[in-house]
């Protein structure tokens, strides 16, 4: 099986996803190689989240194929290599400490009825350390700020043996300074060898770190290539003023 040795981490061929009979994604053929930091961009309803969910097998696809680490997605089962950070709003945690949330990231390797092992504990602490929340381990998750919750969800994803990290809108509802911190963290993880696919509304703080940018519009890939110029251009056509105006205002205020 030389395929598993290949440098392709994610590959899709003519992927078709329909929800309720409506095509949401059409003819999606993308490839993401090892070590890349790829942004998946597009406006609301362009299919970004659906694509990530289809890659992970959370949303079934009606046509084409998905490969993860060189294997057809149906044969892939080495889930500890994938770290998934869903949108913060999709997570329903009522009563749990930060550590308990991060500990669920070990479940891809943990067997039923097995107690927490020393490796589990080390990995959980290391993941909390990596996101700078080691001193928050015993805090209730719900009492953290939005940025801190986002970092907990990243730590949860990192607690496995992650080679590929997929983040869905990690900057949503997080203020600009914290976005910088998160971007720095994502950059560090990528520099350490983790392949990253991040769904973004705008390149923002991650712009200088991106190796590739995939832009979706109405369920089709309209751009694959170098950020940030193309992506900025894309934004100017979609959202002409918002971003520059906002950046300008904040720049002046500080």
């Amino acid at each position: 099986m030389q395929l598993t040795q290949s440098d392709s981490v994610i590959r899709t061929e003519s992927l078709l996803v329909e929800l309720g009979g409506l095509p949401i994604l059409r003819e999606i053929s993308i490839e993401i190689g090892r070590g890349e930091l790829t942004a998946l961009m597009g406006g609301n309803g362009s299919g970004k989240t659906t694509l990530v969910r289809a890659l992970l097998g959370l949303t079934p696809h009606q046509g084409g194929r998905v490969e993860l680490f060189g294997l057809p997605a149906t044969e892939f089962n080495d889930w500890r290599r994938i770290g998934y950070v869903p949108q913060r709003g999709a997570v329903n945690i009522k009563q749990a400490t930060v550590k308990e949330v991060v500990a669920t990231g070990r479940l891809s390797t943990r067997r039923p009825f097995a107690p927490t092992s020393a490796i589990d504990r080390t990995k959980i602490s290391a993941a909390l350390e990596a996101v700078g929340l080691a001193d928050r381990a015993r805090h209730p998750f719900t009492q953290l700020s939005g940025g801190q919750q986002q970092r907990v969800l990243i730590a949860r994803a990192l607690a496995g043996e992650v080679d590929l990290l997929m983040l869905d809108e990690p900057f949503a509802g997080v203020d600009l300074g914290v976005q910088d911190n998160l971007a720095e963290l994502i950059g560090e993880l990528n520099a350490a060898g983790t392949t990253v696919l991040v769904v973004l509304h705008e390149t923002g703080a991650l712009a200088p770190l991106l190796t590739k940018c995939i832009v979706l519009r109405e369920g089709r890939v309209v751009h694959v290539g170098a950020p940030p110029e193309e992506a900025e251009h894309y934004h100017e056509t979609q959202l002409p003023l918002e971003r520059p105006l906002l950046t300008g205002l904040i720049g002046e205020a500080s």
Binding site: R53, L56, G57, L58, N77, W79, R80, I82, Y84, P86, A90, V91, N92, I93, K94, A96, E100, V101, T104, G105, L107, S108, R156, G160
Partner: peptide, 14 residues
Amino acid sequence: FAVCTDEDFAKVMG
């Protein structure tokens, strides 16, 4: 606990 708090994440964990 994982299944009750975040079904999608639990699925990705296999």
